[in-house]
Amino acid sequence: MAEADLALAERVANVRSRAGLDVARILVILGLGLVLFFLILPTLIVVPMSVGTASYISFPPEGFTLRWYIAYFRDPSWMSATWFSLRIAGVTTLAATVIGTLAAIALVRGRLPGKELLQAFTIAPLVVPHIVIAVAFYLTFAPLGLTGNFYGFAIAHTMLAVPYVVITVGAALQRFDPALELAALNCGATRLQAFFHVVLPNILPGVAAGAVFAFLASFDEATVAFFISGIEGKTITRKMFEDIDFNLTPVIAAVSTVLTLISLTLMGTIEIARRRSGAGSDH
């Protein structure tokens, strides 16, 4: 296994470091580099594809053009799908953050009968395959006219996103020192005052992270969207799925780049904020 190789390389390096001959180590680094290349390549490849001039996919891309981005922004069907997705993601973020935060407080800090079971139920939508959820949701909600419909999506996506909020806010609450809340009560604050003055400001990074996860869980969601989209109400993921399946144009690369940029910006912000607060607490 590569691991033993790495360790072996270390020993070999120790023995022969002066000689400078270090074949095993180089091999290990090469293997690691290949895996990392495998990881990152498909994610970044869409960027050059989206600015090539050819109207079919070719590599290496020739020329430079923004026409595929312009095509994306001028195409009413892409635009309506994008706005539809953004609206759903916005409502999902709000609903999932509020519902998930309240539930996390109860699940971490409350006295509840059958807490373990409730916690398992809360994360069930993460465990149950999305194809099963999608088909089941369609079976129940299609007769009610909730497919291809904003409200249907809002309900489905809030349900899919809420576990992320419960997990991140729950983790933040677990790190939160309950003595701080007692101290607030001792200082004369009511439970509600203690929550808003002391608990909430301290778990806010967790709540913000949960909100970002909820947004992306909705905005990037494809499986359920595939089933409950209609001809009118169609998310950007469903539109992409169709276009990938039927007419593979470089516009998809442009859309992919936009989607990736949004995801990376949001997650990168959270990650940097997390690292910064982590580094801050060390001192």
């Binding site: 020192d177 007692l182 101290a183 607030a184 001792n186 400001p201 301290n202």
Partner: peptide, 20 residues
């Protein structure tokens, strides 16, 4: 009496200063 109405000062084990 509720803890916030007792008017009793308390110093906590790890101080419980509000970090924010």
């Amino acid at each position: 009496v509720a803890p916030n109405r007792r008017d009793i000062g308390m110093v906590f084990q790890r101080y419980a200063l509000f970090p924010h």
